[in-house]
Computed example of a mutant assay.
Amino acid sequence: MANYLLGALETVPALSRLDLLAPSTADFLRGFAAADRVGVVEIDPEFSDTAATRDAYALAPEALVNCVIVAGKREGIERIAACLVPFTKRVDVNNAVKRRLDVRKASFLPQDRATGLSAMEFGGITPLGLPWPVLLDEAVAELPLALIGSGIRKSKLILPGDLLARLPQAELLAGLGVRISG
């Protein structure tokens, strides 16, 4: 069972607290063979954004993972992907994502579209249960423990990075994350 300690956060098995999961996240985990390795922790929704979570719960930035939804069009057809990068990096939308989606221009989905299409809350979007490709920076797959959204703002999931790389629609993408300077 997934009982992890990360900074000041101690998890319980995710499927033992369905009230802390978006419906699509719970549905995905019910059918995921490694669901017993996914933990969930309740947090104050005011601290759901990654930087606020880091500060409020004394977390090392290396363990925090951002999930952003990007899209582009090719021949009138929209192509969408979720991108996972460590908090210490930004998604290379103009190069890596654009090439992978095979579009002229890729951009972040506006907040209302990202939350509407994912059926998740902003600040809590998770790759678990999304219908699109999940593009991962290689560093995410190497994390001993990664903190990601749960689909809602009042909780976070903690799981080994190798599980994220084993999601059915996951793809490791070289150059996805670009280190943030400063």
Results as ranks from 00 to 15, higher is better:
105 K>Y: 06
76 G>T: 12
48 S>M: 01
62 E>S: 04
31 G>S: 13
80 I>G: 06
86 P>R: 07
34 A>K: 05
18 L>E: 03
14 A>Q: 07
98 K>S: 13
103 V>M: 12
42 E>F: 05
81 A>G: 11
33 A>P: 00
112 D>E: 11
26 A>S: 15
4 Y>P: 07
16 S>L: 11
25 T>P: 14
101 L>Y: 08
55 D>Q: 14
100 R>M: 13
25 T>K: 13
100 R>S: 12
48 S>T: 11
74 R>T: 04
107 S>K: 07
43 I>Y: 10
14 A>F: 04
9 L>F: 06
88 T>W: 02
20 L>S: 08
27 D>I: 04
27 D>Q: 15
43 I>R: 04
54 R>I: 14
99 R>V: 15
51 A>G: 06
111 Q>F: 00
83 C>G: 03
6 L>K: 08
107 S>R: 06
36 D>S: 13
29 L>D: 14
56 A>I: 02
93 V>C: 01
106 A>G: 03
47 F>Q: 04
68 V>H: 07
4 Y>R: 07
37 R>H: 06
109 L>H: 00
28 F>C: 10
96 A>Y: 13
99 R>E: 14
22 A>R: 08
56 A>L: 09
78 E>A: 14
35 A>T: 05
88 T>Q: 06
31 G>R: 11
21 L>N: 09
77 I>D: 12
113 R>K: 14
83 C>N: 02
73 K>A: 08
17 R>H: 14
81 A>Y: 05
84 L>Y: 10
115 T>R: 07
7 G>L: 13
78 E>R: 11
112 D>I: 01
28 F>D: 12
85 V>P: 13
83 C>Q: 08
89 K>V: 00
54 R>A: 09
48 S>P: 00
34 A>N: 02
88 T>N: 04
53 T>C: 14
95 N>Y: 08
27 D>M: 13
31 G>C: 12
70 V>R: 05
75 E>F: 11
97 V>H: 01
80 I>Q: 10
42 E>N: 04
7 G>P: 08
22 A>I: 12
39 G>L: 09
90 R>K: 13
98 K>N: 11
59 L>T: 00
66 N>A: 09
5 L>A: 15
79 R>A: 10
75 E>K: 15
63 A>L: 02
19 D>I: 06
69 I>W: 05
23 P>V: 14
9 L>S: 08
49 D>I: 05
72 G>Q: 09
54 R>K: 11
69 I>E: 02
74 R>Y: 05
88 T>H: 06
6 L>A: 15
5 L>S: 14
99 R>I: 12
89 K>W: 02
83 C>Y: 09
65 V>D: 07
90 R>T: 11
58 A>D: 15
65 V>T: 03
14 A>P: 07
102 D>W: 08
46 E>F: 10
35 A>N: 04
38 V>W: 08
77 I>S: 15
113 R>D: 10
45 P>I: 01
8 A>M: 12
79 R>E: 09
99 R>A: 15
84 L>D: 08
41 V>R: 07
7 G>K: 10
46 E>G: 12
54 R>Q: 13
36 D>A: 11
24 S>I: 11
108 F>P: 01
116 G>P: 00
71 A>H: 11
93 V>E: 10
81 A>E: 09
63 A>V: 10
104 R>S: 15
67 C>G: 01
47 F>V: 00
42 E>W: 00
68 V>S: 12
